[in-house]
Amino acid sequence: MIRWTGILLAALVTACTVLIATSPVDARQGVIANILYVHVPCAFAAYAGFLTTAICSALYLVRRDERFDRIAMAAAEVGVLFCTLNILSGPIWAKGTWGQWWVWDPRLTVTLLLWFVYLAYLLLRSFTEGSERTARFAAVYGLLGAIVIPLNYFAIELFGGAAMHPDNLEGDSLGPAIALPFAASVVTGLTALWHLVLVRADLEHRQAPPDL
């Protein structure tokens, strides 16, 4: 499984690089717009990772199967990695386009909060003793961390944060020339997430004591 996702990822990265290199440079924003080929896939991967953590946390609590815990942990780690890349790449582009490094826009704020939630999740794991207790405590937190997302959106809108991100990716909001490399980069980001999650969960499995 890991080998196949690895091969798929390598192929996608190659294809993506070619597609982005041959796509036209954005007329208005210039070459800086190419950051979005990293920024947006990272956001998708981070959100998908955190969603996986929340779902696997709930499944772990119901089934008490260590495999769900390993995937929840791996997805949180890789999700935090992508979320960090997303938060770092965003301001570079924002400075060039919006003229400011940071804007308290709802999606930005929620992403930052999620980054804090899942960093706290990882800290909780490393500060708890006993693998089974770690799994239980972390699962409870991973679950609550996901519940807070819609509440946070509501909370931030209440304060009237200026929405700077486009609402949705509609088909015609992207020109046909960049739609394909864009879609390819998102698929690559998600594949990278899954590949790394599988590798990380497998590593954890190898470190775990053997089942008796």
């Binding site: 003793e129 006993g130 693998s131 089974e132 004591p209 008796l212």
Partner: peptide, 13 residues
Amino acid sequence: LTKRFGHAVALDQ
């Protein structure tokens, strides 16, 4: 019954 605490085995079958 088996009970582990991390890598330490407290009870073994």
